[in-house]
């Protein structure tokens, strides 16, 4: 679904922010990308999304694959209401109204956003914005999710809902790439881990492989973060 082979990439020429980043995400797999601030997680995501100005290598989402991207900071069209965002996604993704409308209404109700569908998302709280982004992602039933810091700003019940949704999506066969700082949650739900440090992959693999590579077989992911990054 997603193959990433970054040789190097950055925001200015001759100033590589990420180097030698290689990984893939398969169907039904949840891959957690973790690391300290500035480790290169968001830059890698930008490379995947084709938003990195200077880039060498390949970071390709399989052609024709439907995917959803949730950035770290919720972003909306500042002059479109929540419902207009939903209709826009439905239109450009060519979704069947009979399918997306009930799905969207059920999510709006679960997130208690029904009363604000004709409001501008810019006036929402951070949590409401995050929930709105999730609805926009869920409604197209993507085969691949790319999520940057999904738990930021969510209240406990919404976090629980998100975790359940991610589980449902995996069972449906969707691949998920998730960047996060919440290590204990990542450890609990992810199939594989990519620990980034100083713009490159420090260690990657399943939990056991990662812990073994870090010589902390009985420890946690926290023990795998390089000393200098803590």
């Amino acid at each position: 679904m997603l193959n990433v082979d970054v040789i190097e990439g950055g925001y200015e020429p001759n100033d590589a922010r990420i180097e030698n980043v290689h990984f893939s995400v398969g169907p039904g797999e949840l891959v957690a990308m973790i690391g300290a601030n500035g480790a290169g997680k968001s830059t890698t995501i930008k490379a995947i999304m084709g938003q990195l100005p200077f880039f060498e290598g390949e970071a390709e989402i399989k052609k024709g694959l439907r995917y959803s991207f949730i950035p770290e900071r919720p972003v909306f069209y500042e002059d479109l209401t929540l419902w207009e965002h939903i209709e826009f996604v439905a239109a450009v993704e060519e979704l069947e109204k009979s399918e997306w409308e009930p799905l969207v209404h059920s999510w709006l109700s679960r997130f208690r956003l029904e009363r604000v569908i004709h409001d501008l998302p810019g006036s929402f709280s951070k949590g409401m914005q995050q929930k709105s982004m999730l609805i926009l992602a869920i409604m197209s039933k993507p085969s691949l999710w790319i999520i940057d810091e999904p738990f930021m700003g969510l209240d406990p019940s919404a976090t629980k809902l998100l975790l359940e949704t991610l589980q449902d999506e995996r069972e449906r066969g969707a691949g998920i790439l998730m960047c996060t700082h919440v290590l204990d949650t990542a450890q609990r739900i992810a199939d594989r881990f990519i620990i980034m440090s100083s713009g490159t992959v420090h260690v990657s693999g399943s939990l056991d492989e990662v812990l073994e590579a870090c010589n902390v077989s009985s420890g946690t992911l926290y023990d795998c973060i390089p000393e200098g990054d803590l």
Partner: peptide
């Protein structure tokens, strides 16, 4: 450069208020 987001002070738009 990505379009910098700017926060609207109003809650609902003036035109096409009901989407």
């Amino acid at each position: 450069v990505e379009t910098p987001p700017h926060t609207k002070s109003r809650k609902r738009p003036l035109l096409f208020r009901k989407s």
